[in-house]
Amino acid sequence: MKNSILEIKNLHVNAKEKEILKGIDLKINKGETHVIMGPNGSGKTTTANAILNNPMYQKTMGQIIFEQEDITNLKTDEIARKGIFMSFQLPEEIPGISVTNFLKYAKNKTTMQPVKVFQFKEEVKKYMEELNMNPKNMERSLNVGFSGGEKKKNEILQMLILNPKLAILDETDSGLDVDAIKTVSKGIEMFKTKENSILIITHNTKILHSLKVDYVHVLVDGKIVKTGDQSLAKEIEENGYNKYKNI
């Protein structure tokens, strides 16, 4: 038990009064990388949002335990401060706040410690180089006018800087070209340690080519219908989801 970081128990979630998740169970241990795969509309993004307790989604049943603590109904910012991060499928554009100020502020809020400016700058610089990011973007308004690829890289940059215990990556690979996927995968590899856990949510398998994962879960119509290892992803790549749709 002591290695468990996240445990989801019989989670039911509604969005706009319609039941999307119909009883999900999932356990992630420290240092593990899990993948939730599934066709469009199966409830993948809902799962990510439910963990962060987005008020636009309502939990009707079930529990979410993070490091032995019930976080089901905590506020989003409290959950973030516990050490859960989510990379957004469509990161929001926030005019008037520079990336660098936002990062510094978020770092300060999640760690609840003053940010050491010099160290912070060095760290940001290092990661931006690794992610092939334009340093000029740091002074631009958060995500405003960023290309799809720039936005996703910016999410990965935030993950590296905030260094959460669990990172949830919601469709981080969608809409990216081959080179950008490689860069993003590199960022995820840098983040992976013995302690950090990752939950990747995706509808395709591109990102899994360059990333080693421990478990693959297949989500169809609000339920996890199969769990396996990396070979399950390969099988789905070849055969699609059809055989799981009528279970």
């Binding site: 636009m56 506020k75 910012d77 973030a80 957004f88 978020a106 999640t110």
Partner: peptide, 14 residues
């Protein structure tokens, strides 16, 4: 609301 959620997911209070 989406922008608020985005910022809150980074540990920032509502």
């Amino acid at each position: 609301d989406k922008a608020i959620f985005y910022l809150m997911s980074r540990g920032i209070s509502e």
